[in-house]
């Protein structure tokens, strides 16, 4: 079996790890690292009786995840302090939101940059406050700057002078160039408060955002992790009354109904997630292609099916930009050499 498939099986059913022969572990762990799921896997397998070298590696991975969690929360706290005076809603996104809210998607998760969402009208004030608190632009480049401001769903990335950590300030969850246009105002308006005064998206929007992230960012790279987020969020929230109806409504509101249905089918297929069959819709032939792409990682951490990957890469660029804009973007990039 391909190592990515074994990884998916162990995430869904950790007890199966006891049946993994010693010779298979190195490849499995390399695949888990490459998919940025090693911390998640380590937390899932905690407490199982496994070979000593595996236990040592999993302990390291859990310690690494604990450290990632701590620094993500600290970065959020520093942003909170910098933006406190503005008295505007500041919404944590993705991994930082998961750990701040204690959601199971955050357990063992790797977390990179800090992602926050604010109202578009608040962007200039947020930018000024962050810069006053020690963040600075990663690159001083007029074109890229303009490109970001005109076409992207976030400010150009900022990095903190002394802490060396990046912050991405979003005003919506997909680039304005993408075909679907999420309702950014609703994302902010229906967000919920966290203990420290920061906010997170409402559960249904969090799932819709994870769906947007799964399909719209890159060529499904990191897809297993993004799909795992969706699986965990669904397990955390789907038992609540009226959840599926609300999820369907939010998917429609943000123009992401079809990707949402696809994500539900993929989560069910790979992680055994319980999903609403009506919302997920009937299986489609192309689902198998997505599964193939998601399980592309081999035991050396490589992505082995170049043809499948390339097709998805072209697709992802088309999804994000209209053709004319894509041409303009590539033209200017080429001239800059």
């Amino acid at each position: 079996m391909k190592e990515a498939a074994l990884l998916v099986r162990l995430l869904a059913d950790p007890a199966e790890a006891r049946a993994v022969p010693p010779a298979a572990w190195t490849g499995l762990l390399a695949a888990a690292r490459a998919e940025q799921l090693i911390g998640t896997l380590a937390c899932r397998l905690d407490g199982l009786d496994l070979p000593d070298p595996v236990l040592a590696l999993l302990r390291d991975a859990r310690a690494g995840a604990a450290q990632a969690r701590m620094s993500a929360l600290w970065e959020a706290e520093m942003a909170r302090r910098a933006l406190e005076g503005l008295r505007i809603p500041v919404i944590l996104l993705k991994g930082t939101a998961f750990v701040a809210a204690g959601l199971s998607a955050g357990i063992g998760r790797s977390i990179g940059d800090l992602d926050i969402l604010v109202n578009r009208a608040d962007l200039p004030a947020v930018e000024a406050a962050l810069i006053a608190a020690g963040w600075e632009w990663v690159k001083e480049d007029a074109y890229d700057d303009l490109y970001y401001r005109q076409w992207m769903h976030e400010l150009p990335p900022l990095i903190h002078r002394t802490r060396d950590r990046m912050i991405d300030v979003h005003h919506t969850i997909l680039p304005p160039t993408a075909r679907p246009t999420p309702d950014a105002a609703a994302l902010v308006a229906d967000s919920v408060t966290l203990e420290n005064g920061l906010r997170m998206l409402c559960p249904e929007d969090m799932i819709v955002h994870a769906v947007a992230h799964l399909f719209a960012d890159g060529d499904l790279a990191g897809g297993l992790r993004n799909l795992w987020d969706i699986d965990r969020l669904l397990r955390d929230f789907s038992a609540e009354d009226g959840f599926w109806e609300r999820l369907e409504a939010r998917g429609r509101l943000h123009q992401l109904g079809k990707p949402l249905a696809r994500a539900l089918r993929l989560a069910e297929r790979l992680y055994g997630t319980r999903v609403d069959p009506d919302l997920a819709g009937p299986a489609r032939v192309s689902d198998a292609l997505y599964v193939r792409r998601l399980l592309v990682r081999d035991g050396w951490g490589r992505q082995r099916r170049p043809v499948t990957r390339f097709a998805f890469y072209i697709r992802s660029h088309w999804l994000r930009m209209s053709p004319l804009m894509l041409a303009r973007h590539l033209w200017i990039k080429a001239r800059k050499g």
């Binding site: 010693p22 572990w25 190195t26 000593d52 070298p53 040592a56 050396w300 951490g301 490589r302 170049p306």
Partner: peptide
């Protein structure tokens, strides 16, 4: 060799393009 044949780290030496 590594204990139980289970390595802590993997290194790949490979061409950048096929």
């Amino acid at each position: 060799g590594p204990d139980d044949g289970i390595a802590d780290f993997t290194v790949r030496l490979e061409p950048e393009r096929p």
